[in-house]
């Protein structure tokens, strides 16, 4: 995404205003850690709009609110297990811990080491290791870049009646999230997706729980089961 972005200022503004959808926003948050220009543009945009926050009249706060915060603060430097418990059962992207990202990096190495695809004749262009909110590996997506992708599930998923797992990717913020297909029986599958640009490094892939037949809006709407960023295979 960094390569084909022509309007960093515009993307930063739309991110800061909250106009990107959840998946695009997550991609921007990942990109800003690698892209100093984007990070600077977001910082500048926040400062530009901050005077609008000063228009908010402070309200009187019950001391109870502080007590709740104080009681939930983890010890600094300790594993933030308490934080994840606080937001359990919540698919807010912001609550995904930094450890999940760290685990992804480790997981990519693991996945490559495992080389479950050693016997394959056609190599995927990118591999994404998908983890859940706790950072546990849930699935691997291989995107072959020719409208074919393979999803290998590495954990048991419970799919309620009337629901299905949908596979998504974000080829570019302009295009938005695109469905690669459905995983009906919670089993590893090969998918015939739509024609998309060649997958790129750090492209976002995710699995969400959607109603049977797939998301009614064509965009991810349900609980995020797992997500991860692609790595180009070498």
């Amino acid at each position: 995404m960094s390569e084909d972005r022509t309007d960093i200022g515009g993307i930063a503004d739309e991110y800061v205003l909250g106009l990107l959808d959840a998946m695009e926003a997550r991609q921007v948050e990942a990109d800003m850690e690698r892209d100093p220009d984007l990070k600077a543009a977001i910082a500048a945009s926040r400062e530009r709009f901050l005077p609008l926050d000063d228009t908010a009249e402070p309200t009187v706060i019950d001391d109870d609110l502080w007590s709740r915060i104080d009681a939930a603060l983890p010890v600094q430097g300790a594993a933030p297990a308490d934080v994840s418990r606080l937001t359990a059962n919540d698919n807010r992207p912001g609550s995904w811990r930094a450890t999940a990202l760290a685990a992804m990096v480790a997981a990519v190495i693991l996945a490559v080491a495992l080389s479950f695809n050693l016997m394959r004749t056609v190599e995927p262009l990118v591999v994404a290791v998908l983890v859940n909110e706790a950072g546990d590996i849930q699935a691997i997506v291989e995107d072959f870049g020719n409208e074919k992708a393979a999803v290998r599930l590495l954990a048991d998923f419970t799919v309620p009646e009337g629901k299905t797992i949908e596979v998504w990717t974000l080829p570019s913020p302009e295009r938005g999230p695109v469905s690669l297909g459905l995983i009906d029986d919670a089993r590893s599958v090969r998918l015939d997706g739509p024609a998309l640009p060649k997958p790129h490094d750090s492209q976002l892939y995710e699995l969400t729980l959607e109603q049977a037949g797939g998301s009614p809006t064509g965009r991810p709407t349900g609980l995020i089961l797992a997500k991860g960023f692609a790595k180009i295979t070498r």
Binding site: V16, R46, L50
Partner: peptide, 27 residues
């Protein structure tokens, strides 16, 4: 409430290149 726990756990990540501390907290 959740934001203050986040501010606490992520405080070590704050750098001036992310903008002002206030802008970072408000974001």
């Amino acid at each position: 409430q959740e934001s203050f726990i986040r501010i606490w756990t992520q405080a070590h990540q704050y750098q001036p290149d992310r903008g002002s501390a206030r802008g970072w907290i408000y974001a």
